[in-house]
Amino acid sequence: MATSELTAFKEKMKLRTKRFAHDCVRISLKFPENMLGDHICKQLIRCSTSVAANYRASCVAQTIPTVIAKISIAIEEADESEFWIEFALDEKLISKAQSEDLKRESHEIASILIKSRQTLQQKRLA
């Protein structure tokens, strides 16, 4: 991938992960103000914003192992976001339509980042 393509990819992913975090925050703030709603709200906000923050950190990391580590955290947090979205649906805190869009996005982000990590790991071994 050429440098300009890599830069464009990174910027697109920064925006995409940030938009995902914002979408999760917006939906979380609509949860009922009770013990369960508050807990799921905090968990989803924490992990979804962590996806964006760790991806962003990977873009400025100084070494390949650090990039891989930050991307790995973002993958784990995207997967956890998907879990909390599913849980919120199970508890009827969000609609099926709302959950489908967020779940699809968290899954796609994780898949893209897994492929990026694999590519970096292969480069490191070459």
Rank of each mutant, 00 (worst) to 15 (best):
M1Q: 04
T3R: 06
T3A: 06
S4D: 14
E5W: 02
L6Q: 13
F9I: 05
F9N: 10
K10L: 12
E11P: 09
E11Q: 13
K12Q: 06
M13W: 05
K14E: 12
K18S: 04
F20Y: 00
A21D: 02
A21Q: 04
H22T: 00
H22S: 05
H22P: 01
D23F: 09
D23Y: 06
C24E: 13
V25K: 12
I27L: 09
F31T: 03
F31Y: 07
E33A: 14
M35R: 10
H39W: 03
C41P: 07
K42T: 11
K42E: 08
K42C: 00
L44P: 08
I45W: 04
R46F: 03
C47P: 02
S48Y: 04
S48M: 08
V51M: 12
A52M: 01
A52T: 03
A53I: 09
N54F: 07
Y55Q: 03
R56G: 01
A57P: 04
A57M: 04
C59P: 06
V60D: 05
A61I: 03
T63D: 15
T63E: 15
I64R: 15
A69E: 10
A69D: 05
A69Q: 12
K70V: 00
I71A: 02
S72A: 07
S72E: 04
A74D: 07
A74E: 06
E76S: 13
E76H: 06
E82M: 11
E86P: 00
E86D: 14
E86C: 13
F87D: 14
A88Q: 11
A88T: 01
A88L: 08
L89K: 04
L89Y: 05
D90I: 01
E91S: 02
K92V: 04
L93P: 06
L93S: 01
S95H: 00
S95A: 02
A97I: 11
E100G: 01
K103A: 10
R104Q: 12
R104F: 01
H107A: 13
H107E: 08
E108V: 08
E108S: 13
E108C: 11
I109R: 09
L113D: 14
S116K: 10
Q118P: 09
Q118I: 03
T119R: 07
T119F: 12
Q121L: 10
Q121S: 11
K123T: 00
K123N: 01
R124L: 08
R124T: 04
A126K: 15
A126N: 15
